[in-house]
């Protein structure tokens, strides 16, 4: 069970009130989580990563277990705590404001 936390605007777009819970077969990678998330919520396609290249959008970050995974390869296997559902996988909009 993978818990995914989305930023406010993407929760609104996907019409989910809180965390998204996904069942993903091993190995649980960043790319696999995003694939499953977009399959469950197609409206999110293109909002986190580019439709064609699947490259992360510039102002989106991926955090888990206090680590920034944004620059890691999509094939990177997520930490055990995320795979077990103890810790969430965070999709974060880059900070803006003053």
């Amino acid at each position: 069970m993978i818990r995914v936390v989305l930023p406010y605007h993407l929760r609104t777009l996907a019409r989910v009130p809180g965390e998204v819970v996904l069942d993903i077969p091993s190995p649980v990678t960043v790319g696999a989580v995003l694939d499953a998330l977009e399959t469950r919520h197609p409206a999110l396609r293109g909002t986190i990563r580019d439709h064609g290249t699947l490259k992360r959008r510039p102002f989106i970050r991926f955090f888990a277990c206090r680590e920034d995974l944004s620059l890691d390869s999509p094939e990177t296997v997520l930490p055990d705590a995320v795979v077990s559902g103890t810790e969430p996988f965070l999709v974060v909009g880059a900070m803006a404001g003053g």
């Binding site: 777009l13 019409r15 197609p42 396609r45 293109g46 064609g52």
Partner: peptide, 24 residues
Amino acid sequence: STPDGAAVPVPGEMPSGGASNRFA
């Protein structure tokens, strides 16, 4: 609604593709 992105997938049906957001 997003024209190609059902907010709540229909059980038993494959979700659609989110193509309405795609401009290539």
